[in-house]
């Protein structure tokens, strides 16, 4: 037995096994790479070679199509989780000077009761993105747009760094005993609403999502309604518009008051 040749055509096992395996491979390749693609009317193939390339997954030039451009400006800020996380003392100092013009609404310490956002301790990337969007027109505000229009990219980074440097001040409406609404903790999966806390703190924080603790309930509510109505649309890939549109008026009220009461 041991002197029988294995890899030899005199060994019937060799011929049969290689032959059968090769036949199945060839037949399945012919069916999968030629016959089936050609049998599909929608593929519009130029010939056998085109069919093989298509079925083998060779990238093909995309069909030229005229993309639909929105009739409004979209945000051009690219968010990354590392963005503006490195502390730069010079930048903070410059930002402190620049921020004097912001103090009338946002407070000298970045906190105010004017229903404008509290900026003390806000993530730098968040403040920077909003300023940028005001400047480009992706977000529109009669108050903020003129301020942002005159700011350079470095100005915006400096102001953002300064506000990120300021300590968060406990809200006047602090109430940590307040139970978290369901929408904050678990979202509403069937309406495609992720838990608020999974991006805005509590559970996790995602790049570009502002810290909401202590923000004015009036402001939060106004922004959610603006997202829902489409009046505000500088959220990347409609992340907040898709969520706000699915929220009930009651839920918007709940989260606004919940976050206002958080540290």
């Amino acid at each position: 037995m041991s002197d029988q040749p294995l890899f030899s055509l005199r060994n019937p096992w060799f011929g049969a096994s290689v032959g059968i395996t090769a036949a199945i491979a060839v037949l399945s390749a012919v069916a999968g790479l030629i016959w089936l693609p050609l049998a599909q009317p929608n593929l519009k193939l130029a010939g056998v070679w085109d069919a093989i390339c298509s079925a083998a997954g060779v990238p093909r030039a995309a069909v030229q199509e005229t993309g639909i451009k929105p009739d409004f400006k979209t945000s051009n800020v690219v968010m990354t989780s590392e963005m503006l996380t490195k502390v730069n003392q010079v930048s903070i100092g410059r930002g402190a000077t620049l921020a004097q013009r912001c103090a009338i609404c946002h407070g000298p310490q970045g906190v105010s009761d004017a229903h404008s956002p509290n900026l003390a301790g806000q993530f730098a990337a968040v403040t920077y993105k909003e300023l940028n969007d005001f400047k480009t027109g992706a977000r529109v505000s009669v108050v903020m747009s003129p301020f942002a229009a005159a700011m350079s990219d470095q100005d915006m980074k400096d102001v953002a760094a300064y506000y990120a440097y300021l300590p968060r001040v406990p809200s006047n409406n602090l109430d940590t005993g307040r139970p978290a609404p369901v929408i904050v903790v678990t979202g509403a999966p069937m309406r495609n609403i992720a838990p608020c806390g999974s991006c805005h703190g509590d559970v996790d924080n995602k790049a570009g999502s502002p810290w909401l603790g202590g923000q004015s309930a009036v402001y939060i509510k106004a922004q959610l309604e603006a997202f829902a109505s489409g009046a505000r649309r500088n959220d990347i890939s409609q992340q907040m518009r898709n969520i706000a549109r699915q929220m009930t008026a009651d839920e918007i009220d709940q989260v606004a008051h919940y976050y206002e009461a958080q540290p």
Partner: peptide
């Protein structure tokens, strides 16, 4: 998406085997 439909078919045939 990264594998062509033809190769998916071939793997399907051999899975049947």
């Amino acid at each position: 998406p990264q594998v062509g439909a033809g190769f998916k078919f071939m793997h399907s045939v051999f899975t049947g085997l």
